[in-house]
Amino acid sequence: MATPIIETANFCKRYGSLKALDSVSLQAPPGSIGLLGPNGAGKSTFMKCLLQLQPFDSGSAKLLGREVGHEGREIRKRIGYAPEQDCHIPGMVGCEYVTYCAQLCGIPFQSARQRAHEMLDFVGMGQERYRKIDTYSTGMKQRLKLAQAIVHDPELVFLDEPTNGLDPKGQAQILELIQSLRKDHGISVVLSSHLLHDVDRICDQIVIIARGRVLVHDTLENLKSRRRGAAEVVVANRHDELIQAFRRNSWPCEKLTNGHIRVEHAGENLNPLLRLMSDIQVTPLEIIPSPNALEEMFIKALGENQN
């Protein structure tokens, strides 16, 4: 088994009387990990404590097999971090900034400059790299943050809300870049977000955090399999007929506002559903298995935690 990229045991962080991280114990193998949680759940604190941007109070943590708190410089040489907020150096132009970040990681100037341009190409920045960062749009700044995080070729990248403030097209582009880091280049990614769609799209492991506790840690596939037996059916007509057929079978169902029919067929796969539809001769336009599984899991986990 590969060395876990993140390993924590009873990891605690307090702000006065508030427990920001409450005995977090986690073992995450390499991959793309989505940190999910509502605002103030402790996602960013968890990241910052791991990166030693904030001190933790008790417990132990390892990143890439190295002890956090003892081998900080060595760890940071192998990881990248794109914080949520803007963090550029005023007055610098884009390519100069990324070059500087590469040099801070120990890359010699000539290589740093070449590497900076490669990374700016990778994140899709054109001639605007020669402009001062102060004049950049939110999307450009997000790309620049990603470029500075990966310029030194890390093994693990922490991305804190990387799609914040982006339009849908920009979000799609950034997510595609992040996905390619893991899929095509083997760089592990920890993505903190409150946008379930982002995490659902690119992560293969999910960690749900609330009130400083890890509520769920599993692969996305396993989480979705827990919600097997639900589906959304899209049909062109005969909605009522289909709903009645489902109810005759004692399958709870409802018509959604978008016209789709949501049904809980309780089967391991879609075969019973398809069989029923075939019996009543209704042809579906589309069947979406386990829709919103992540969202439901997320809400359920939060609900259980509150109870």
Binding site: L53, E74, R76, P83, C87, H88, I89, L104, C105, H152
Partner: peptide, 17 residues
């Protein structure tokens, strides 16, 4: 300026203490 622009976070996340 590093404090006002949060650049201090970038420094802290690189391989320097």
């Amino acid at each position: 300026r590093d404090l006002s622009s949060n650049a201090i976070i970038v420094y802290s996340s690189k391989a320097i203490g």
